[in-house]
Simulated scan of single mutants.
Amino acid sequence: MLRTLRQWLVLMVVTSAIVLGGCSPQGGAQSSAASPSPTQTASTPVTPASSPQTVGLPRLNGTATVALVVKGSTITAEIDGTNAPVTAGNFVDLVQRGVYNGLVFHRVVREPQPFVVQGGDPQSKNPNFPPEQLGTGSFIDPATSQPRYVPLEILPVGAKAPVYSKTFAEAGITAKPKLTHKRGALAMARSQPPDSASSQFYITLADINFLDGNYAVFGYVTQGMETVDKIQQGDRIESAKVVKGLENLKTDAKS
């Protein structure tokens, strides 16, 4: 009974940590949330052509390596465009644009047990922006002067293409996702609408399996989890760089 209550409390904390965090196309709040090991990859990239929501979005055809510097220490992550081409492409494109430089980790949840660290709200670059309002921002594409949103994108094990714009429960899928919420997973924060992810992301501090099939994992920390474990609310990303695989980023995607 005590264990069940504890799991329920964790679920409540988790849900609020992932569903209360930023602007969505529908005007809601943008959210969110593996041992530190390399990403699982398939032999050939999946294609996002089955979803009209992916048209014109950046795509990562393969993998890329990103280095985040926090408190003078480097966190290295392998970004998996093989299994999450649109989600990974969006993140790598934002890193390459310098969007994450100077942004704050505005949400850190370690109690009642380790959960996630979350950042990526562009509003946090302004040190005078009210901290209590962080988690409400999205990336504004300078080409359109509009927020850029990416669809929920999750590849089931054994499938040839990801499921777009639906959670596994909504799509009636019982298979596990190819990319799971292991400790060290990077995934996109979003609000309740499935296609509301933009720039906010989270890193899991433990295995958070009940998020599988609900949020889009796009990579894993491969080095520096000890730094992730020490991140405190208000810590800034000093720099974010693509150190390998930039040639796999396609920013002129037509489908």
Rank of each mutant, 00 (worst) to 15 (best):
A159M: 11
G245W: 04
E247Q: 12
A206G: 03
T82P: 04
F201R: 03
A216S: 15
N128V: 05
A216T: 13
Q146S: 14
V19T: 09
P151Q: 13
G89Q: 01
F115M: 11
S43Y: 15
F129M: 01
A171R: 14
P130W: 06
A42T: 08
H181T: 10
R107H: 10
V157K: 15
A49I: 06
T227Y: 09
N214H: 15
K160G: 14
S31E: 03
F218I: 07
T180M: 14
P177G: 13
G102V: 00
K182P: 08
E226S: 11
E247K: 12
S198M: 13
S198H: 12
Q123N: 15
L103E: 02
Q223H: 06
A197M: 06
V69W: 03
A161C: 13
D80L: 00
G184D: 07
G135T: 09
M188Y: 13
I75R: 00
S165D: 07
L2P: 06
E226M: 05
Q232T: 09
T74V: 10
I208V: 14
M188A: 12
G213R: 07
T44C: 02
A17D: 00
K182A: 14
L11E: 10
E153V: 00
A171C: 15
P177F: 14
P177I: 12
P156Y: 11
L152T: 12
N214K: 15
M188V: 10
N214V: 14
K230E: 08
V117Q: 08
R3P: 11
Q26L: 13
K254Y: 12
S124Y: 03
R107F: 03
S31N: 08
V14W: 07
T167C: 13
V117N: 06
N209A: 14
P127L: 00
